[in-house]
Design a protein around this nucleic acid. Structure first.
Length: 432
DNA sequence: TATACGTGGTA
DNA sequence: TTACCAAGTAT
């Protein structure tokens, strides 16, 4: 018996072939899965119609995002942009605002760019030809298959994380699902499983099973419609599948954030700026901030006084001289690949203040930060995060027609600008 | 092939 | 609280 187990592991590829070529098992899988889906499928907003535009929007929103999170965003989005034409004609700012808080904001910008592609190249009708769908911005292999199958019932596979998990278990596939080659083979397998004429239901059923029954942890095998022939279940290996290589942990970053309150004509307003057109949080709005540490991993804490001085210098260099007014709060935010440690300071705009800002920290302000890892180096403040005064005003030569990078805003002005969640949290305490 | 790209839920 | 995870795509 022991020899038998070892033999199976060592001849993995043979085993995969045996499982995935068992026609009877494959037919059983499709039949039982469809029957289960008919009685178990959730009533989701995007399942109430076959409009390819709505299917498309939902599929983009669902990328790396839970159904429960997407639902309210989807409702708001189609209310605001009922047709593909509405989306194509909208200001990008409006689209980003609708996406605010959902994350992966390039999805929103790509979706609108693709909508404009469809208007120009396909007269506003979502294409149903594979190559044309796949050519849309932000539409990769999964979404191509999802649109073609769900909206047009074409027999194309739509292999996402759910599908790879389900198939790896049912067919006992031990390949690392993080590898591209694995997904390609999963697509071939998934395609061979689609019951004739049932692509839309089958693909959604596969994902639904992964979401409701064949979950990553503690799968509900006892109520699974295909438990009887699930190879992983028969071997007691469901908890060990799918095989997935570990992701790298996010690297820490330490930043000093300025909460600058305006005076005079800007009284009651706060200084914000728009991020660059590419990279992290592209074209989103934020509070001005600068790196706090050249090397985040070592060093004693930077006292608040010097930290505020460096922020003041950076603000002045950007054309916004301001007086430090003390520590506000710490904030943390984890992205997929970066962990931000933010230390927020309040400033008062001072049109005629000296440069750098004359500020003498109190003894108390030094004490509070000694355990922080905010290791500032003299030059770090200017390396990024601020723009020279010459770039503050509109730059007509910009290929993208950039607006001002900095803006004084009131609470009401926030309604029109998209902020990442981390800054929404900080700002929520300001305008109240 | 590896990395960049957000956020919130769950164990 | 750390760690993993959720209907991926672009480069």
């Amino acid at each position: 018996m022991q020899e038998n187990i070892e033999n199976k592991v060592s001849k993995e590829s043979t085993e995969i072939t045996e499982n995935t070529e068992n026609t009877e098992n494959k037919q059983y899988f499709g039949t039982e899965l469809l029957k289960w889906y008919e009685r178990s499928k959730r009533d989701l907003p995007w399942r109430r119609h076959r409009d390819p535009y709505y299917i498309w929007v939902s599929e983009i929103m669902l990328q790396q995002t839970r159904v429960d999170t997407v639902i309210p965003y989807f409702q708001r989005f189609i209310e605001r942009f009922p047709t593909l034409k509405d989306l194509a004609e909208a200001p990008e700012e409006d689209v980003l605002k609708c996406w605010e808080g959902l994350g992966y904001y390039s999805r929103a910008r790509n979706l609108q760019a693709a909508a404009r592609q469809v208007v120009e190249r396909h007269g506003g009708t979502v294409p149903s030809v594979k190559a044309e769908v796949a050519a849309l911005k932000g539409v990769g292999p999964y979404t191509t298959g999802a649109i073609l199958s769900i909206a047009f019932n074409q027999p194309e596979p739509a292999v996402d994380g759910n599908v790879m998990r389900v198939l790896s278990r049912y067919f006992l596939i031990r390949e690392d699902i993080m590898k591209t080659g694995t997904r390609t083979r999963m697509e071939e397998l998934a395609a061979s499983l689609i019951p004739r004429g049932r692509a839309a239901d089958f693909n959604q059923a596969l994902m639904e099973l992964g979401a409701l029954i064949c979950t990553p942890k503690s799968p509900s095998c006892l109520v699974c419609p295909v438990m009887a022939r699930c190879a992983a279940r028969l071997e007691g290996a469901e908890d060990a599948l799918p095989v997935k290589s570990k992701a790298k942990p996010p690297r820490p970053e330490y930043r000093l954030v300025a909460l600058v309150e305006g005076d005079g004509e800007h009284a009651g307003r706060v200084l914000v700026r728009r991020r660059p057109a590419s990279g992290l949080l592209a074209r989103m709005w934020e509070l001005p901030h600068i790196p706090a540490a050249a090397d985040a991993g070592e060093g004693a804490g930077l006292p608040d006084g010097p930290a505020m001085d460096r922020l003041a210098a950076a603000l002045a260099a950007a054309g916004f001289p301001a007086q430090p007014a003390g520590f506000v709060m710490n904030a943390e935010h984890t992205f997929s690949h970066i962990h931000w440690n933010l230390r927020v300071y309040r400033f008062s705009a001072a049109a005629d203040s000296a440069f750098p800002a004359a500020y003498t920290p109190s003894p108390a302000s030094y004490g509070g930060a000694t355990d922080m890892a905010f290791v500032a180096e003299a030059g770090a403040a200017m390396e990024e995060g601020v723009l020279p005064l010459s770039m503050v005003s509109a730059s007509p030569d910009s290929s993208r027609g950039e607006l001002e990078e900095y803006r004084w805003i009131s609470k009401a002005d926030m309604e029109g600008l998209a902020f990442p969640n981390v800054f929404l949290r900080i700002l929520s305490g300001v305008f109240n």
